[in-house]
Simulated assay, not measured.
Amino acid sequence: MGRMETIWGQDCLEFKPERWISSRGGIEHRPSNKFPAFNVGPRTCVGKEMSFVQMKMVAATIIYHYNIKLVEGHPVTPRDSIILQAKYGLRVSLSKRDVI
Rank of each mutant, 00 (worst) to 15 (best):
I21W: 04
R24C: 14
I63N: 09
G25P: 03
G73P: 00
R3I: 06
G89P: 00
V92S: 10
S95T: 13
V40D: 06
F38K: 02
M57I: 01
V92H: 10
P36Y: 06
R3S: 14
I68H: 04
T77E: 13
A86D: 06
L90A: 05
Q85N: 06
E5N: 15
S22M: 03
I100F: 10
W8F: 13
W8M: 04
I27A: 06
F38H: 02
T77W: 01
P78I: 11
H29Q: 12
E14P: 01
A86E: 01
V53W: 00
G89M: 03
T6F: 10
L94F: 13
C12G: 09
R43Q: 10
K48R: 15
L94Q: 09
L70T: 11
F15V: 00
Y64P: 00
V46E: 06
E18H: 09
M57V: 02
V76Y: 04
N33R: 14
T77M: 07
P36G: 04
M55P: 02
M50F: 15
K34V: 09
H74A: 05
W8I: 05
A37T: 13
R79N: 04
L84M: 11
I63M: 14
K16G: 08
E28P: 01
P31K: 01
I68K: 07
M1E: 15
R79H: 09
G47V: 05
E18S: 12
R3L: 15
R24H: 14
G89W: 01
K87L: 14
C45E: 00
H65W: 05
G26D: 12
Q10P: 14
A86H: 08
V99W: 04
S81Q: 07
M55T: 12
H74F: 02
F35P: 00
K87N: 13
T6L: 09
T6G: 09
D80V: 13
A59T: 04
G73W: 01
C12V: 10
G9N: 04
F52V: 05
